[in-house]
Amino acid sequence: MDIFLQQIINGLTLGSVYAIVALGYTMVYGIVQLINFAHGEVVMIGAMVALWVISSLAGGAMPPVVIVLAGILCAIPVCMAVGYTMERVAYRPLRSAPRLAPLITAIGISIILQHVAMLVWSRNPLPFPQILANPIFEIAGATISAVQIAIIVLSLLMMGGLTLLVYRTKLGVAMRATSENPQVAGLMGIDINRVISMTFIIGAGLGAMAGVMVGTYYGQAHYTMGALLGLKAFCAAVLGGIGNLAGAMLGGMLLGVVEALGTGYIGEITDLCHVSGISTALAERCAEDGHMVVFGSNYQDVFAFIVLILVLVFRPSGLLGERVSDRA
């Protein structure tokens, strides 16, 4: 088996999900300079709603594809409503407050949503119903599943669609104008409250899709699943340059690949048996077990944060960010 190619495939799959979630962070940041830490919970709610709908319908007369579509079509509006409501109720009243206030509020909303989800959907991980056939294909010594293909293709379609929306439609131009100068956007007749709401709604809709995809991929959903996923996607947005759409897409993909390659090779790289000559005790252990790994693949989650730290040190504005913008 080709580990390198396999980890690239796995990385692109996960990276697609990170990219879609990162877009939600970056769109909101671009327009209101707020890091919406509750965005990960929107993703979790998307997964939970889809799981609930799919489990309820599974085993009935409907074909599996229709059931999954029904799950998605329920998750999206629920997440959109959550995204709209959190902006309307929690962030809008704080729009001219010092920026620490909405940031702390975002963390608070994230905690509230997690606990509401725990009350509604239980504190245990729930199995995500695998009702679609998931054939595995072999390419050049690696494997790719139908679910992986679907995740990558759907994500690319969503990224393309969002790019068209932002660069080719009147709403998109209005969003970019508002992000640059809300007061002058108002002079043009743009209702900036509406544009900000739309931004949260679109970001949350993408988040819902990400939730369904990641739930299907891992085969489970849990009320805390949004926290780490959200944090990693936030790292991806910063890596690409927060506020920059192409940056979020690139950052997400890169982060997924770095994480997968890191996880795939960390055991081999930190295997002390490569240097078993330095001590006789080590040589004995290696002769016995063959390996003495310092960091195993359970260190998977550190890579995102290593990347975040490196970016903050060497390129604080991110790969595609022009400047570190600050709220005036």
Binding site: K170, V173, A177, M188, G189, I190
Partner: peptide
């Protein structure tokens, strides 16, 4: 695009 925004209404 700037001119388009002028005609936003």
């Amino acid at each position: 695009e700037n001119l388009q925004m002028g005609a936003y209404i």
